[in-house]
Amino acid sequence: MNMSSYHYLGETWKHAILIVGSIVVILPFYIMLSYSLKSPGEIERNEGGFFGSQEMMIDERCAKLREPDQAAIDSARQRFTGLSDSEIYKALKAEIDTECSVRPIIFNYTKAFSEAPLLRYLMNGVIVTVSIFVVQVIVALPCAYALSKLRFRGREFVFGMVLFCLLIPVHAIALPLYIMLAKLGLTNTYAALVIPWTISVFGIFLMRQFFMTVPDDLIDAARMDGLGEFSIVWNVMLPTAIPALLAFAIFSVVAHWNDYFWPRIVVTGNRDLFTPPLGLREFKGDADGSFFGPMMATATIIVTPLIVAFLLAQRKFIEGITLTGMK
């Protein structure tokens, strides 16, 4: 066998292995999307391929809700003169069935929004992730600037503290944090969702390392121009730090949009504060067999924003998520 065909064979093998791996990785995404398009019957019997047949289906709950009672039959008697009660019942039932039929895809996605306040959950997710990121930056940037560019007694001590705190995963100390927040009466508030994440020692560390590379001349020039330290941080340092900040933003937003543990602990019962993962979990708790479709639609809606953003800006995202690799 000559060299090139040997290489060709090797290449084929590699692709074969990677494709099998890709199928396993993609499988749940495929199921999620596909189930969010299908009718309960198709999910149950595992048929209809990816899109399902999209035949009209009857919304069972809608039909049950409008189940004609005796009063309805009596009032409909004028429309169906000369029919017996049971025949009128059948006719009414047929009308209701047509009124309650929908395409599965429409059914699943409208139910996702109507069965639970999904829009509210999504909004909560945005509020929480954005607040966390903004506060993290407000706290971290001046601190990182001071640690890298200002001289003051105790600087090394503060930096040592940052390094020490890098060792403590916030999830691990969730319990004492929960007790402290409960003592302050803050559980079931937006504050409880945001407060533990306001300090990102990792963010401080990262920005400090970045600011170390910014030449002192830039800062001296700004001071000559009469800028105060405060405006140096926000008008000089911040613009230079945009690439690092963007990566940190991705890191932070992905972590908190997807976080389930912390919201689960501090939000108990109050649905108005649910973040998207909590909302989905609640849906799972309530769901009976016929609601698998809407549940998968909810999952799709929750997962899609980050996946789409990732597909659009892959390099930035991979850089952001693997930031921790710089430690």
Partner: peptide
Amino acid sequence: YKTIFFLPVMAALLAMAIVWEFA
């Protein structure tokens, strides 16, 4: 391949766990 293998890192684990339960 890089993109595909990275997808699970981006997706909310809770959502994907529920999908795996289906699978």
